[in-house]
Design a protein around this nucleic acid. Structure first.
Length: 189
DNA sequence: TAGGCCATCTGGTCCT
DNA sequence: AGGACCAGATGGCCTA
């Protein structure tokens, strides 16, 4: 696996697009995202927002001065901004998730798919650990142990039924898989 | 240079 | 009706 340790990318500002009018094409509207400026590079927002005829899908409806109505363009710009904010929230959530997954090399940022996969198996390993502790300590007595274990068994039977993967239903397998993934991520594979 | 990852735009669809 | 959500498209950045 390659490293994904590059610095966060900047986003465009209205100033950006104004600062590079030569790169703008007349067939796309100007958008403003209100983010911090870039250094030497056009931001994604700047690019895709219509600076050039590249970045993002090109729509015939947007083409040409006589393309869309002003109100339609304005709605699209507002929609773009909302979508951008939504994706930023999603990315913030990913970052928060990365920060609670232990045993990950600090200098290597997990990709989104790595984050989700590792988190899933981390949760499973924690569940297996809790079960091992509670069922061993409270066999047949009052308390969460037996109920939790029953619930877990039901879940695992469902998983096994869905995936036809018997190993997936074994708590030990979760811990093993998590450990393996941590190891592989650490090695940058 | 290829491949992986990402940000952004966009139109369609779902939801409130 | 308007916003949220989703997936496809596109091109830039980075590493091996």
């Amino acid at each position: 696996m390659k490293t994904k340790n590059r610095p966060p990318r900047r986003r465009a500002t209205p100033q950006d697009t104004e600062a590079s009018p030569a790169e703008q094409t007349p067939d796309r509207p100007q958008l403003g995202s209100g983010q911090e400026p870039a250094k030497g590079l056009r931001s994604r927002a700047s690019r895709a927002q219509g600076g050039r005829a590249e970045g993002g899908r090109r729509r015939p409806g947007l083409a040409g001065p006589g393309g869309r109505r002003e109100s339609s363009i304005q709605r699209r710009l507002e929609s773009n901004e909302r979508e951008r904010q939504r994706m930023h929230k999603l990315n913030n959530a990913f970052q928060a998730l990365r920060e609670v997954i232990p045993h990950v090399r600090a200098d290597k940022k997990l990709s989104k798919i790595e984050t989700l996969t590792l988190a899933k198996n981390y949760i499973k390993s924690l569940t297996a650990t809790i079960l091992a502790m509670s069922s061993g300590r409270l066999p047949g007595l009052d308390g969460p142990g037996p109920k939790l274990y029953q619930h877990y068994q039901q879940q695992q039977q469902q998983v096994a039924g869905d995936t036809l993967d018997a190993a997936e239903a074994q708590p030990e397998a979760h811990l093993q898989r998590y450990s393996t993934q941590i190891h592989s991520f650490r090695e940058g594979s």
